[in-house]
Computed example of a mutant assay.
Amino acid sequence: MTEQNPSKMGWYIHRTSKVTRSTCGNDGSQTYHVEYKMTNTLENSQIGALTSYILGSGGQGVEKTLIYAPAGGSISNLKTSGGSVTGSRQETLNGKTVYASIATIAPGESVTYSFDVATSTKAVSSLTIDQTPMGWTDSGVTTDTAVCSINSKKSSL
């Protein structure tokens, strides 16, 4: 994601995600359900005390979000809730399918993206989320892989 409001609103957008493994295929593939949430932690009472340098236009986070599957995998059932999400579209970036949108998040609001991910049959580790660094040490990512263990194929020479 990238901030589209010329500001320092990224300081106030707290991101959390939950990755839940749903299935493990005999062929090594896996499926997951992902919930990715962005919350604008700015309070309306703070707006008068902050400069336009920080707030940009009114303290709203305007987040361009790109979601793409791991190599050889796919994304399905993409849904959003909360806030205002516009410009949702499927694009191609460097030959790969990318889901792009703009989420506008007012102070105290949240936007949640939920979707399913299928991995490649060549996957050898659990799905992770790669995101830009945040202003705190906790990555905000929780993972639940208890439903099954990866059954990756081993190649023999």
Rank of each mutant, 00 (worst) to 15 (best):
G72C: 15
G87F: 04
Q60G: 11
K37G: 07
N26D: 08
G87E: 06
S101Y: 09
G25P: 04
L93E: 15
A103I: 00
S84K: 12
T41K: 15
I67T: 02
T31I: 03
K64Q: 04
Y12P: 01
S52Q: 06
S17C: 03
G25N: 13
W11M: 10
K37I: 08
G87R: 15
H33D: 05
V98H: 10
C24Q: 04
K96P: 05
Q46H: 14
N77S: 04
S22F: 00
G95I: 03
R21W: 00
I105L: 05
I105Q: 12
Y12D: 01
R21V: 02
V19I: 15
K79A: 09
L78C: 09
T20R: 00
G59F: 08
K18W: 09
T65A: 07
N40Y: 13
T97S: 13
T39M: 06
S22V: 09
V98D: 05
G87W: 09
Y53R: 09
N40E: 01
Y68N: 06
R21G: 00
G73A: 13
Y12C: 06
S74Y: 10
E35D: 00
G72E: 12
A49V: 03
G59T: 00
T104N: 13
A71V: 14
T20P: 00
C24F: 11
S52E: 11
M9V: 01
Q90T: 14
T92L: 07
K8I: 06
M38C: 02
V98L: 14
I54Y: 09
K18L: 10
L50P: 03
H14L: 06
S84Y: 02
T86P: 00
E91K: 10
S84H: 05
G10N: 03
R89E: 12
Q90K: 09
G73T: 07
N26S: 15
Q60S: 12
G56N: 03
R15S: 01
D27S: 05
G58Q: 14
D27F: 03
S84G: 11
A71H: 15
L55S: 06
S57D: 11
I67M: 08
M38N: 07
L66S: 14
G10C: 02
Q60F: 02
T80A: 12
I54K: 07
I105W: 13
S22C: 04
K96L: 08
T97N: 15
N94Y: 01
A69G: 04
G48D: 08
I13K: 11
T20S: 05
I47W: 10
I67V: 11
R89W: 03
S74M: 11
N94K: 05
K18M: 04
R89A: 14
Y99R: 02
T86H: 04
W11G: 05
K96N: 04
L93F: 14
S84M: 04
V98C: 08
A103W: 02
G59V: 01
I105M: 12
N94V: 00
A49S: 15
C24P: 01
S52G: 06
W11I: 01
T39F: 12
A71K: 15
T31F: 03
G10I: 00
S29P: 05
I13G: 06
H33K: 08
T92I: 07
G87A: 15
Q60N: 12
V34R: 03
N94T: 01
K37W: 02
S101F: 05
S84E: 08
S22L: 10
N26Q: 14
G83Y: 02
A49T: 06
S22K: 04
T80W: 02
G56Y: 04
N77D: 11
I102V: 07
D27E: 08
K96W: 13
I54R: 10
Q60Y: 11
V62Y: 13
